[in-house]
Simulated assay, not measured.
Amino acid sequence: MSRDPAPPTPTLSQLRALIAVAQAGSFGEAAAELGVSQSSLSEAVGRLEAMTGRPLLRRTPGGTVATAAGERVLAHARAAVQAAGDVLLAAQDSGELSGTLRVAAYRSVATHLLPPALATFRRAHPGVRTVLLDGDTEETDAELALRTGRADAAVVVQGHTPGLHLTPLVYDEYLFVAPAARGDHPATLEELSGQTLFLPPGRDQCHRLVRQYLEREGVSLSGLTENPQDSVILSMVAHGLGVTILPRLALHPLPGGLVSLPLPGGLSRPLALAVLPWRAHLPLLRAFTDTLTRTLAARVPGGPPTPPPGAWPPALH
């Protein structure tokens, strides 16, 4: 009995080519990053498109982007390439780790929480190269970097990340920040709605959490002004141009000329380390998760604190 011929199967190099071009936005930049010729990259993507029977990329004035079919293929391509690398990672012994660990995190977390853990991890596992990715920008959003395979782990706000394996870390309280001349008497809702309020851009999760809090408390947003740089926001506030609400980690150390106070009713972001569920068992990720939680527990006796009021804001939409 004759057998039907096996369907063509994409190679890892073809999948890597598609991922590289989609991520770089052009064949030229992708070829330079991979260290191959542009023609070989075009040929690899062309063969993949021939197998699927439809275009996966299209050129636009802004660069090369994935088609609708390409977006669907990319999700599986990233998973396949990642799984191939995980074959080797899974075989490692926790005592002799090697490879690259990429962690995406908000700048405030990367500044104050991760360095001690990364230093401890490097001493214990010198064969692992660690890379810290900025999780505050649209291009390197922490959760997106994790889901698309650009990061192996990410610090995220727990409660807004379905489908991820989460390890709770700490609660980061949001504080009302005003000019020091205001004094340190408690902040009021009337004060929040009575002047210019500086916040990060609307795409930023910090903005969305604070906005939900303000809307829930009935605070007017008519004076809302957006700025992408925390340092600029704090300078504007110090000069009496308005007030802001930022996480405690983003305010440490608090610049001169400012006062920070708890919000009426309280608001916190519960931070967690996220990994893809099917990768949580990898020795490399287990070792880093253990190191991070132990380091934070040593800095906070008794472990993570009890969730404060407002620690679990409504789900983001």
Rank of each mutant, 00 (worst) to 15 (best):
R16K: 13
I19W: 01
A22D: 14
Q38I: 05
V45E: 12
E49T: 03
A50Y: 09
M51Q: 13
R54L: 09
L56V: 11
L57R: 08
R59M: 01
P61T: 08
A69L: 07
A75I: 15
A79T: 13
G85R: 11
L97K: 04
V103T: 06
A105N: 03
V109G: 00
L114H: 06
T120M: 02
F121M: 03
G127V: 04
L132I: 10
L144W: 13
T148W: 06
R150G: 05
A153N: 04
V157F: 14
T167G: 02
P168M: 04
Y171M: 00
D172C: 02
A178G: 05
T188C: 03
D204A: 13
V210N: 01
Q212Y: 05
Y213I: 05
R216I: 02
R216L: 06
S220K: 07
G223W: 06
T225A: 14
E226H: 12
A238C: 12
G240C: 10
L241A: 15
A250Q: 09
L251S: 09
G257L: 01
V259S: 07
S260D: 14
G266M: 03
L267A: 02
R269C: 05
V275D: 02
A280R: 15
D290A: 15
L292D: 07
L296A: 09
G302Q: 12
